[in-house]
Amino acid sequence: MGDLLTVGIADMKIGVGDDILITYALGSCIGTCLYDSTKKIIGLSHILLADSKVCSNDNNIYKFANTAIKELVRQMVIHGANTSRLVAKIAGGANMFKNSTLKIGENNTRAVINELKELGIEIFASDIGEDYGRTMECHASDGKVLIKSINKENLIL
């Protein structure tokens, strides 16, 4: 039996074998799941913000798209993953309040997509935007990602 590992806000975890990584209630945040299907190594990052350079406090590299995803790749490679085999599944980036001028979800989405493009990692599937929260569950055994929301049917990426 693998472990169930919870990824908090501004956090990341790596799983192997039968491990399951879960991050709860993504709102404007983004969950980025990377998977090496040959080695069955899975990684999940939960970022809060797009860019560390525009924030006065940038000491948690797991918090920002521009620093977290590079770090996730680096740690997965240490665990034996091969960068060229990694594929991404992303979820979140919602705009929770419709009239809000805070475009945090959109900014985060753009930043994560750019970052993955720069790293040369293909986005295999995504469930992004709109106005609802998502829980994301990532399975190391087959790379399956399950998305759960309050008002919607479960979705498999």
């Binding site: 709860y24 209630a25 404007s28 805070l102 929260g133 829980t135």
Partner: peptide, 9 residues
């Protein structure tokens, strides 16, 4: 919605 998603704001 879920508390966590709302608190992300």
């Amino acid at each position: 919605d879920m508390a966590g998603a709302i608190m992300s704001v």
